[in-house]
Simulated assay, not measured.
Amino acid sequence: MTADAFQPLSCVVLTVSDTRTPDSDTSGGLVVERLTEAGHQVAEHRIVPDERQGLEALLREWAAEPWVDAILTTGGTGITGRDVTPEAAAAVYTKAIPGFGELFRWLSYAEIGAATIQSRAQAGLAGSTLIFNLPGSSGACRLAMDSIILPQLDSRTRPCNFAEIMTRFGER
């Protein structure tokens, strides 16, 4: 990190779950808390069911909004039949960011061992909007936020970060 000025980003958080409520959404709450504590703005936090069409439509809607810098989802990244977040998000991506999922699973292995292969956590760009798809467990969200996402959303992180190059995401 350097002494450069912090640049807060506008983020939205989406919990993908058939069972979570605002009171029981610990993962979404953790993501909101971490973003807010870091100085970013959380413009919206929503819970939606594990339904691909609706999820894909909402991701497209938010990604098209100029005020949304990053979308962070929790849940739906496993391998069961109802887990559709990676497919919905991939349909919205204009560019995948495979390093996120690779690094997340590598870090996760130290905590949960080989069970990390069941995670389909991923990230990508939808135009100039970052999208991070996190597992639904609070531990996984904590790991992803603290070790990867928050440093990359901080314009002071060196040698590089997403925040400082966001204006160039849409360039050709």
Rank of each mutant, 00 (worst) to 15 (best):
residue 129 T to V: 13
residue 3 A to I: 06
residue 18 D to I: 07
residue 64 A to R: 15
residue 102 E to V: 05
residue 69 D to C: 04
residue 26 T to R: 07
residue 6 F to P: 05
residue 84 V to N: 05
residue 77 T to F: 07
residue 132 F to I: 04
residue 56 E to A: 14
residue 32 V to Q: 09
residue 116 T to C: 14
residue 103 L to K: 11
residue 52 R to A: 15
residue 139 G to K: 03
residue 141 C to V: 07
residue 70 A to L: 05
residue 74 T to M: 03
residue 154 D to I: 00
residue 17 S to C: 01
residue 64 A to V: 12
residue 165 I to G: 08
residue 38 A to G: 00
residue 10 S to M: 07
residue 126 A to Q: 05
residue 133 N to I: 11
residue 99 G to F: 14
residue 60 R to C: 12
residue 2 T to P: 01
residue 75 G to K: 04
residue 13 V to F: 10
residue 38 A to W: 07
residue 75 G to W: 09
residue 142 R to C: 03
residue 11 C to S: 09
residue 113 G to A: 08
residue 71 I to K: 05
residue 120 R to I: 11
residue 69 D to T: 08
residue 88 A to P: 13
residue 166 M to E: 11
residue 97 I to P: 05
residue 162 F to S: 01
residue 167 T to S: 15
residue 132 F to M: 02
residue 92 V to G: 07
residue 127 G to Y: 14
residue 137 S to D: 09
residue 44 E to V: 01
residue 7 Q to H: 12
residue 81 G to P: 03
residue 44 E to K: 09
residue 150 L to Q: 00
residue 172 R to C: 01
residue 13 V to E: 10
residue 124 G to C: 02
residue 163 A to I: 11
residue 144 A to W: 04
residue 51 E to G: 02
residue 120 R to K: 11
residue 52 R to D: 13
residue 70 A to P: 04
residue 132 F to A: 01
residue 38 A to I: 02
residue 91 A to V: 15
residue 149 I to P: 04
residue 151 P to K: 00
residue 110 A to E: 15
residue 20 R to F: 11
residue 112 I to E: 10
residue 65 E to V: 10
residue 156 R to Q: 11
residue 14 L to H: 03
residue 89 A to K: 06
residue 48 V to I: 15
residue 155 S to Q: 10
residue 93 Y to G: 04
residue 68 V to R: 05
residue 28 G to H: 00
residue 32 V to S: 05
residue 3 A to R: 06
residue 3 A to F: 09
residue 110 A to V: 04
residue 152 Q to A: 02
residue 113 G to H: 12
residue 76 G to L: 01
residue 80 T to G: 13
residue 30 L to V: 08
residue 43 A to W: 12
residue 109 Y to H: 15
residue 20 R to V: 08
residue 151 P to G: 01
residue 72 L to C: 04
residue 73 T to W: 13
residue 164 E to T: 15
residue 92 V to H: 13
residue 96 A to S: 15
residue 162 F to V: 03
residue 123 A to L: 00
residue 151 P to T: 03
residue 107 L to V: 03
residue 20 R to I: 10
residue 128 S to M: 06
residue 129 T to L: 07
residue 168 R to H: 14
residue 33 E to N: 04
residue 111 E to Y: 10
residue 162 F to H: 06
residue 153 L to M: 04
residue 29 G to C: 03
residue 106 W to L: 12
residue 158 R to A: 12
residue 140 A to W: 10
residue 132 F to V: 02
residue 139 G to I: 03
residue 159 P to L: 12
residue 49 P to M: 06
residue 61 E to F: 11
residue 22 P to W: 08
residue 108 S to L: 02
residue 94 T to V: 07
residue 41 Q to P: 00
residue 89 A to F: 13
residue 101 G to C: 07
residue 56 E to P: 02
residue 73 T to A: 02
residue 35 L to D: 04
residue 139 G to D: 08
residue 19 T to C: 03
residue 115 A to R: 13
residue 117 I to S: 03
residue 160 C to N: 14
residue 51 E to V: 15
residue 25 D to A: 01
residue 35 L to M: 06
residue 119 S to M: 05
residue 55 L to G: 08
residue 30 L to S: 02
residue 137 S to I: 04
residue 62 W to N: 06
residue 10 S to N: 15
